[in-house]
């Protein structure tokens, strides 16, 4: 390259490249900067609000003081409930698509429907959850109705990641297992699933992140404005972090008094997302190295 004759056109070409590459680099770092601005804004404003009391106490004085404990527990309940539904169904569905479905037409159809489900806006899930679970099935506003609605929302995420995980398992494992006389289910459960397991768990963790931050689906299916009590069953309502942030940042008779609570709640939500993402990445890396060793 150094011996290249730097004629006029060559110089122009390289200058164009330098400008273009500089622009791209600049824009990429701009994208990263956006994230950093949002994160640091929430963190800097939110940290003063965080204390042990904030995390473990009930809201007080018209939700301008006290803590957000019931909202944290509520969100945990909803996450657990939705995953209890979405994880087994999603994994089984992906196993069916990847390991069992014989005709490619069926496979394509299910995949297409899954993609469609993934594209449906979250507010439509809210409408649907209200019409089916709350009204038709008569669950009322409850953890059950909210969890099922969120579970349906998370289903495509679980299916897709599980499918990817199963696909990445080399066919030689399956062939070897079948050749040794194992049945299809034995092959799937004893050979394929253990290898794919780390990636499946990564998908699970990512969908937990998604579910814990959704507001629109729980608006009309479970979320309570004020309920300073922990749920005692699946037909109870709960407070939830995202909805709590929404109400204390837009309603209430004194917004300024609850602003600090709002920053704190936003920070807790962000931290959950951060943990979920870091955990997923760490798992991916950890098991990624391990699987390669085999």
């Amino acid at each position: 390259m150094t011996e290249e004759i730097l004629d006029a056109s060559g110089r122009a070409k390289r200058r164009a490249q330098r400008i273009a590459f500089f622009t791209f680099t600049f824009m990429s770092f701009f994208v990263i900067a956006i994230l950093l601005v949002i994160l640091s804004f929430i963190i800097i404003r939110g940290i003063p609000a965080i204390s042990w009391e904030f995390l473990t106490e009930m809201p007080k004085d018209g939700m301008t003081k006290g803590g957000i404990f019931p909202a944290i527990i509520g969100t945990l309940c909803l996450v657990a409930g939705s995953m209890l539904f979405a994880f087994p169904v999603g994994v089984m569905s992906a196993i069916y698509i990847n390991e069992y479905a014989k005709s490619s037409w069926v496979k394509r159809f299910i995949q297409m429907m899954t993609n469609n489900l993934a594209g449906i806006p979250s507010i439509v899930f809210g409408l649907f959850g209200m019409a089916l679970f709350v009204n038709r099935f008569g669950f009322g506003d409850s953890i059950l109705a909210g969890s099922l609605t969120l579970g349906l929302l998370a289903l495509p995420v679980v299916i897709r990641t599980t499918e990817e995980a199963l696909k990445s398992v080399d066919d030689s494992f399956r062939i070897a297992s079948i050749a040794l006389g194992a049945s299809k289910w034995q092959t799937t459960s004893l050979v394929v699933l253990p290898i794919a397991f780390p990636n499946i768990i990564t998908g699970l963790i990512l969908s937990i992140g998604r579910v814990s931050g959704e507001t629109a689906p729980i608006l009309f299916t479970v979320a309570a404005y004020f309920l300073p009590k922990l749920p005692s069953g699946i037909f109870d309502q709960v407070m939830a972090l995202p909805y709590h942030l929404y109400v204390i940042s837009t309603s209430g008779t004194d917004l300024k008094a609850s602003r600090e609570m709002a920053y704190g709640t936003a920070l807790v939500l962000i931290v959950i997302v951060l943990i979920v993402n870091l955990l997923a990445n760490w798992l991916r890396k950890y098991f990624g190295n391990k699987v390669k060793l085999h």
Binding site: I38, F41, I42, S122, L206, G209, R210, S212, G213, E214, T215, A216, P242, Y243, L245, Y246, S249, A262, A266, L269, I270, V273, V276, N277
Partner: peptide, 10 residues
């Protein structure tokens, strides 16, 4: 991964 309500708040 950041929840939409956090974006809204921001």
């Amino acid at each position: 991964g950041i929840p939409s309500v956090v974006y809204g708040f921001f």
